[in-house]
Amino acid sequence: MTLLSLAWANIMRDKLAATLNTALMAVGMATIVLLLLFGHHLSQRMTQDAAGIDLVLGAKGSPTQLVLSAIYHADIPTGNIPLAEAERWAEHPMVRSAIPLALGDSWRGFRIVGTTHAYPAVYDAELRTGRLWTERGEVTVGADVAARGLSVGSGFAGVHGLAAGGHVHDDNRYRVVGILAPTGTVIDRLVLTSVQSVWAIHGDAEPEAPEITSMLLDYATPFAATRLPRLINSQSPLQAASPAEQTSRMLQLLGVGIDGFRAFAWVLVVTASLGVFIALYHALEARRYELALLRSLGATRAEVLLSLLIEGMLLSSAGAIAGLALGHGTASIIGQWLDFAATDGLSGAHWVPREGWLLCYGVVVGALAALLPAIRAYRSDVASVLKSA
């Protein structure tokens, strides 16, 4: 009988204890895996959505709210700004390009965005079918929006605001002329049209003092990052917010909450490790005679010690592997439930490099948990044990 088969046979002698310890280890590991996947997904998604946009111009207020509304379309805007003032800064020598955004309405929770054709180009969005909007009232929709039942030729009415129950603009309906291919970015969840269409929906296609919600800027030189935001904030009624800076701040704030859940998960893992230790310690007391008998039949001290170490590593490694499988499976279920599967969203198919350390931890913690019982078995006197049996 090999040491591996001997260790496995000992585990199978008390299946209930082995199952409980493995399950507790698996739950702790699965929680850590799920947090790693969620953090990786969120960081990657936020970075992709903000890529190619150096600065956001908007109304005075919270810079975080401005970035959330203009980049991630996950909050209400800080207000409207005069188009003339925004264009003044868009024509600044430090600015390479500028994209206006006019917000206010939505369809089934998806924001309707008045903008230019330069906006989908920021995310390298390509048409899956149809074309980009050109006339007033025409829209091109993202992949996630189209998945809710829209196709080229479909008509719908926008709802004021993002929440359900807002005023429905039945007198000015939109018509779908194109659908974008999935990009895995925020644009998949947007309805794109012209700024003039948004103005027309709200009663004035050609206002005397036109306003927009925000303006997205791209720097012409690296020097602009240190100079332009301060100029705008100090010399105009507008606010300039850096997506990179605000995104980093949001991820740090979110990381505090994730760290709390991760600490709880590690408590579960440590508890499972103690469970493995206690199970092996008590099992050693019950198996002292058997181990002494093995020694008398020719097994060396090192082989007895090694068999107990292998037993501990098998238990904790099984828990770690089960935890990885459970964590990835749960991530896939959540991704499907939240309807992220159509994009590059939360999915169990992704692998975070730090997960490899969890497997290593499973092996190490098993060895450490079994170390004290193994040392006791190593030091036991065969003659005295057999004599007292």
Rank of each mutant, 00 (worst) to 15 (best):
L4F: 14
L6S: 07
I11L: 15
I11Q: 02
D14G: 04
A17D: 06
N21D: 03
N21T: 11
T22S: 09
A23L: 15
A23S: 15
L24K: 00
A26H: 04
H40F: 13
A50Y: 03
A51M: 09
D54L: 06
D54I: 04
V56A: 02
L57P: 00
G58L: 07
P63L: 12
P63V: 11
L68W: 03
S69T: 07
I71A: 06
I71S: 02
Y72S: 11
G79M: 14
H92D: 13
R96P: 02
L101M: 07
L101K: 02
L103R: 00
V113K: 03
G114H: 02
P120R: 05
P120K: 04
Y123M: 01
E126C: 05
T129Y: 03
R131F: 11
W133Q: 01
E135H: 14
V141Y: 03
G142I: 05
G142E: 03
G142C: 10
A143G: 06
A146C: 07
V152P: 01
S154Q: 08
G155I: 06
G158W: 01
A163F: 14
A163E: 15
G165K: 11
G166H: 01
R173C: 08
R173F: 11
V176Y: 01
G178V: 10
L180W: 00
D188C: 12
Q196W: 08
W199F: 09
A205Y: 02
S214K: 07
D218A: 13
A220M: 06
T221I: 03
F223G: 04
S236Y: 07
P237T: 10
R249G: 05
Q252P: 03
L254D: 12
G257N: 10
D259C: 00
D259S: 10
A265D: 01
S273C: 15
V276Y: 01
V276E: 00
L284V: 05
R287V: 05
L291S: 05
S296D: 13
S296C: 13
T300Q: 09
E303P: 03
S307N: 11
S307W: 02
L308N: 01
L309W: 04
G312N: 02
M313F: 08
L314H: 00
S317M: 09
A318S: 14
A322Y: 07
G323N: 05
G335W: 01
G335V: 02
Q336T: 11
W337I: 09
L346T: 11
V352C: 07
R354L: 14
G356D: 14
W357V: 11
L358Y: 04
L359Q: 05
C360V: 10
V363A: 04
L368R: 04
L368H: 04
L371S: 10
A374E: 10
I375G: 03
A377H: 05
S384Y: 06
